[in-house]
């Protein structure tokens, strides 16, 4: 069996409870390289908790998350040291926040935002860092002339694209996205989704995307997981689940989309 056939990310019986309050429960799935998984559900269904567990920002109270590192060895993320975890987080992973201000350094220029990860892994050549930042700005359709401007001067859509460039500069294999199109108007959303879809295909990225917008899930994802009250109630190919939902709750979700 070649390495590509093995999953990149695996979870087994993953759960988190906040005291008596349940965050999520018994989540198991495998994610392969180049695969986009959407987690959908209403507010409070446990999707954000799950994303935080997967990205090791929070420790689970049950189950485990394993990841196949760049050297091909699959490791339980709970056994990684803090230094290793942080290194993984800023090299092989990306995290796109709903609010770009959370994922960007708003006080430094766009170029420095993109270059930060490179400098963190030891790049010390200004010219090369800048060149890489320029090429990434181009790829996310930001005018290169704005490279020295602060993200404060950027529109919401540009900030989100800048955040994506900042995450992709170290060529990660896995990206977590938390409502990446939330708070953007429809035309800006469409452009961002188009860009994301191209980048994901081009770079062969694995993505876990949390969204309550089923249209986003349909456009971007291969597979979908529907959550309700902390549990996964339905999972399958995106088209299949959205066109022919089995669970009553999923049927409700799908039917509550306003016709265009």
């Amino acid at each position: 069996m070649s390495m590509m056939d093995q999953p990149l990310l695996m979870t087994e019986g993953l759960g988190k409870s906040y005291g008596r309050q349940l965050g999520c429960r018994d989540v198991s799935f495998n994610l392969y390289e180049g695969e986009v998984l959407a987690i959908v559900g209403e507010s409070g269904s446990g999707k954000s908790t799950l994303l935080q567990l997967l990205s090791t920002q929070m420790a689970p109270t049950a189950g485990r998350v394993c990841y196949r590192m760049r050297d091909g060895v699959t490791r339980d993320l709970a056994t990684l040291g803090e230094a290793e975890r942080r290194f993984l987080y800023r090299t092989d992973w990306g995290y796109v926040h709903q609010d770009p201000a959370m994922g960007l350094r708003m006080k430094v220029s766009a170029g420095a935002n993109v270059g930060e990860r490179l400098m963190a892994v030891g790049w010390e050549h200004y010219g090369r860092i800048r060149k890489s930042a320029q090429s990434w700005l181009e790829r996310v359709e930001i005018e290169v002339g704005r490279i020295d401007d602060s993200p404060h001067t950027y529109s919401g859509g540009m900030r989100q694209r800048l955040q994506i460039a900042r995450n992709l500069v170290t060529e990660p294999r896995l990206i977590f996205m938390d409502e990446p199109t939330g708070g953007l108007d429809v035309s800006v959303q469409a452009r961002l989704l188009d860009l994301l879809r191209n980048l994901v295909a081009e770079l062969g990225l694995a993505v876990v995307i949390v969204t309550h917008d089923l249209a986003v899930a349909r456009l971007l994802s291969h597979r979908i997981m529907v959550m309700k009250e902390g549990r996964v109630i339905e999972t399958g190919l995106t088209d299949q689940v959205l066109d022919d939902p089995r669970e009553p709750y999923t049927q409700l979700l799908v039917s509550s989309i306003l016709p265009a």
Partner: peptide, 15 residues
């Protein structure tokens, strides 16, 4: 983790 220190110097050169 001192990458951030270089971000400061990067900003200097950029501006």
């Amino acid at each position: 983790e001192y990458g951030l220190m270089h971000v400061k110097l990067y900003e200097d050169i950029a501006h």
